[in-house]
């Protein structure tokens, strides 16, 4: 009986130890998970980025199974082209903007009023033109050069498309850079560095723009990227719909905008309206009208995700 009691007590102690160990381990796992969740919650831009990438991947997977191969291939090409153009726009916008902002500061500092005035005039001239009109004018030039045989390769066309898009977007970036410079000009650190004989070029380019404005610039880059996609889609759509019968989607590289303007895509989009009045038709949207709906979804979902990412970054870095 005693032996039995001892055995029970021992088992009881073992069970208690196991239970306590288990609780401790569970608490550790839970707190690690909590920390990880907190870390993610602390940086929601990452979550939105992953949601964007994940959403696009799911869409691609759906299309892989339910969209025919030639149309899917077209969609993939349009997506890559649009992303490539938007990426180029980001790079070019920043090159123009950085140069312009620095030159304005340089001329203003040295009281070269004519040169600074000319730069301001050029900037205002670009700003006065609605972006979409400006880019359309650029496309006119591109189509002319395509017709005359000066631009032949698809990559060349995309580069020129990026040049014109960036030309009408970069003034926004100039405004940001100049705002940052103006802010730091009032600070003691700008004056303290100048009095130490450090050149304005170094202070503006390295200390202000590189060291103190990277987060702002990154956020602006994402905004420029989404602006570029939006403008590009709008203009490509307009061009493809009917500005020209001779130069159209046939000559320009396929992009999300031009694919959306495609007759099949338009029918797919119209089907959404049809399914609103005939709900029984709704399931067909996911199998029979995938091209147009996928393109529209990629555009809208990308713009929405980028908007959320920039907002989250602005909040996270208190921009």
């Amino acid at each position: 009986m005693k032996f039995l009691l001892k055995q029970i007590q021992r088992h009881d102690a073992q069970l208690k130890a196991l239970w306590q160990n288990g609780r401790r381990r569970a608490a550790q796992v839970l707190s690690a998970a909590e920390r990880q969740t907190e870390r993610w919650a602390h940086f929601p831009a990452r979550v939105y980025f992953l949601a964007w990438a994940g959403g696009l991947f799911l869409l691609w997977l759906w299309d892989f199974f339910f969209l025919n191969a030639p149309e899917r291939h077209l969609l993939e090409i349009a997506f890559v082209h649009s992303l490539l153009i938007a990426g180029l726009v980001v790079v070019l916008s920043f090159v123009w903007a950085w140069l312009t902002a620095y030159l304005i500061e340089f001329f203003s500092d040295r009281q070269k009023d004519v040169a600074a005035g000319l730069l301001h005039f050029a900037l205002n001239l670009i700003r006065s033109l609605p972006q979409i009109v400006g880019v359309l004018l650029g496309y006119v030039w591109i189509t002319y050069r395509i017709q005359t045989g000066h631009i032949r390769s698809g990559l060349g066309i995309m580069l020129w498309m990026s040049v014109f898009l960036s030309l009408f977007i970069f003034p926004e970036v100039v405004a940001l850079l100049r705002e940052r410079i103006a802010y730091f000009r009032q600070s003691d650190f700008f004056n303290a560095m100048r009095v130490s004989g450090i050149s304005d070029a170094r202070i503006i380019n390295y200390d202000i723009l590189w060291k103190n404005s990277r987060r702002h610039i990154l956020n602006k880059m994402i905004a420029v990227f989404s602006s570029a996609i939006f403008l590009q889609c709008s203009v490509d759509f307009i061009v493809s719909v009917g500005l020209s019968t001779r130069v159209s989607a046939v000559n320009l590289p396929t992009t999300l905008g031009s694919l959306l303007a495609n007759i099949d895509s338009k029918q797919d989009i119209l089907a959404i309206g049809y399914s609103l009045t005939h709900p029984g038709y709704l399931p067909n949207l996911f199998f029979l009208h995938l091209q147009g709906i996928s393109v529209a979804l990629v555009i809208v979902f990308t713009l929405f995700s980028l908007y959320k990412i920039t907002n989250a970054l602005a909040e996270r870095f208190r921009l």
């Binding site: 003691d188 650190f189 303290a192 560095m193 009095v195 130490s196 004989g197 200390d207 060291k211």
Partner: peptide, 12 residues
């Protein structure tokens, strides 16, 4: 050359 009063503000 000048040393500014508040190092926090005078340095990047």
């Amino acid at each position: 050359a000048m040393v500014f009063q508040h190092a926090d503000e005078a340095l990047n």
